[in-house]
């Protein structure tokens, strides 16, 4: 239902052109959940915003590539078509639930507007629909809460309201950009649960962007790992966690503290590369523990590592397995 083909997104800044997204190709099937994982500056947010063409232009430009939603290229749509896309097919849930709601209007009014923008219907019917949506996202006593202002809700409840607004257009794809980062763990658990229920009930595909590997482990069917504007590994959740085929993903998994075992953490040395002047070879080479001379010159493409599993590394699956074993035994 969504197909991204060799997408490039550039940001024109005073320091030069930032290649925020640098040749990304993937697709999402109806009803599945895809997680995009990456650190800040990896381009994951810019990528997500590109799907609805929400990056401010300028500085953003789309020099190459296509984004198809139901076989229509988003990057060639006019304003009217974009509005239709945003109102009906793709909806977004943002990170900060406070600044995404208009503080001077009642939640119900904002919700009803969203519903009526999607499909014209009488006010009374729209209001009933709004109450139903609020009930679906787990807001207690929706009949009276519909007349509250955003500041009268807590952070978790506001995020629920935002999800309700996203659902108002009955989208086929829900893009959630760090939807739980601003929330406490117990509230995060509630919202993640809600996303799962919603998917069950509405059958929408979900694209969740996060830096938290725990969140994708819980939610995603497939995971897309981004580094310096590129996809470096793409596969099922099992593939990514148990059959890791790319040194960056592997290092990332080893750098996070896990419950129980008190082993020393193994950080990734150094910093992500500049996206204005990326390294000539592999982007991860300067920080990679297994980098060789060849990595400095060869810029690896995403290549298959098994059924639906892809990685961008000159090491083959078997070579990388043996290195991993070596490290584990030492």
């Amino acid at each position: 239902m969504l197909k991204v083909d060799n997408l490039h997104v550039h940001l024109d800044t005073s320091d030069g052109i930032v290649k925020a997204v640098d040749g990304v190709t993937f697709s999402i099937e109806a009803g599945e959940t895809i997680g995009i994982v990456g650190e800040s500056g990896s381009g994951k947010s810019v990528l997500a915003h590109s799907l609805m063409r929400l990056n401010p232009e300028p500085p953003a430009t789309y020099p190459k590539g296509k984004v198809y939603v139901n076989d229509r290229n988003v990057l060639q749509m006019n304003k009217k078509e974009l509005r239709h896309l945003r109102g009906n097919q793709v909806a977004m849930v943002f990170q900060d639930p406070m600044s995404s709601l208009n503080p001077v209007f009642k939640v119900g009014k904002q919700l009803i507007e969203g519903i009526q923008a999607h499909r014209k219907r009488p006010k009374k019917e729209a209001k009933e629909k709004a109450i139903e949506l609020l009930r679906d996202v787990g807001i207690p006593d929706p009949e009276s809460r519909i007349d509250s202002y955003p500041h009268q809700f807590s952070g978790g409840m506001r995020q629920r309201v935002l999800i309700a607004m996203a659902l108002a257009s009955e989208p086929k794809l829900l893009v959630a950009d760090e939807p739980t980062t601003a929330l406490d763990v117990t509230i995060q658990a509630q919202v993640l649960d809600l996303l799962k229920q919603i998917q069950h009930k509405y059958g929408a595909a979900i694209l969740i962007i996060t830096h938290d590997l725990g969140v994708v482990a819980q939610l995603a069917d497939r995971i897309l790992v981004m580094y310096a504007g590129r996809i470096v590994e793409f596969g099922s959740t099992q593939d990514i966690f148990y059959r890791t085929a790319m040194p960056y993903t592997w290092s990332l998994l080893r750098s996070i503290p896990t419950a129980g075992a008190k082993r020393r953490l193994i950080p990734i040395d150094g910093q992500p590369p500049s996206l204005i002047h990326p390294p000539k070879g592999c982007n991860f080479e300067p920080r990679c523990p297994f980098a060789t001379d060849a990595c400095r010159h060869i810029d690896p493409d995403l290549e298959p590592r098994g059924d639906g599993h892809q990685a961008a590394c000159i090491l083959s699956a078997s070579e990388f397995e043996s290195i991993k074993e070596e490290v584990a035994s030492s």
């Binding site: 940001l11 024109d12 800044t13 005073s14 320091d15 930032v18 925020a20 800040s40 500056g41 381009g43 994951k44 947010s45 810019v46 300028p58 500085p59 996206l275």
Partner: peptide, 10 residues
């Protein structure tokens, strides 16, 4: 806003 805005890449 400058002529060429400096943008945070997220």
């Amino acid at each position: 806003v400058k002529r060429k805005p400096r943008t945070k890449v997220a």
